[in-house]
């Protein structure tokens, strides 16, 4: 069997294409668990705020702490398999959080409704940025859900908290399940 150089180049391109798809699929599967976890966290938090606003309104961060602990547990579990901790991912989340805290508490004067819209959109734009490097699914999730959050902020009135529970809660869970299938 003889192979011409153009055939060899086409074959190598085919190999690279398959390898890229497998790597992207692995990345999606890894990210999916964290996305599903935050879907449940968002759903629980927003439903609790909606049902018990007096008690839970000022204490919403308690549920988020469960999400942070769960995310760290997942990252640590992966670190034991991969042999190294994904410090850059953790640092990226910490930087996003620091940026959000500075703007929502120090510089900006956000009311509860603005804060409820600000935090999800901040992290969803982070997903959109990640999509530029790691795959269109991240960008689609980020931009799609951010648009729904903004629409809810503008037009859902008193039902905004329930809208948030549905959009970020069920939205993240559905997106995570879809990414796991990939």
């Amino acid at each position: 069997m003889t192979i011409r150089s153009d055939e060899a180049a086409a074959t190598l391109a085919d190999i690279e294409n398959v390898v890229a798809k497998v790597k992207q699929s692995r990345l999606y599967r890894k990210a999916a668990l964290v996305i599903i976890l935050w879907g449940f966290v968002d759903l629980a938090r927003d439903l609790m705020i909606g049902l018990e606003p007096e008690w839970f309104g000022p204490r919403w961060f308690l549920v988020d702490l469960v999400g942070v602990a769960g995310t760290l547990a997942l990252l640590c579990y992966r670190a034991t398999l991969a042999g190294r901790f994904p410090l850059r991912i953790l640092a990226a989340f910490a930087l996003f959080y620091a940026f959000g805290w500075i703007w929502s508490h120090l510089i900006g004067r956000f009311g509860p409704r603005e804060e409820m819209a600000f935090w999800p959109t901040l992290f969803l734009f982070g997903y959109s940025l990640a999509g530029l490097w790691f795959g269109a699914a991240f960008a689609a999730i980020g931009l799609g859900l951010a648009a729904l959050v903004v629409a809810g902020y503008l037009w859902t009135g008193e039902a905004f908290i329930l809208w948030q529970a549905a959009v970020t809660g069920f939205g993240f869970i559905a997106c995570g399940l879809w990414m796991r299938r990939g």
Partner: peptide, 22 residues
Amino acid sequence: DAPDDVIHQPIRLRVMAALTAL
């Protein structure tokens, strides 16, 4: 100096590319 006839077939090549990416 010769291709691997088992691997060179396009479907088998893609299978091996996918599996060795892991």
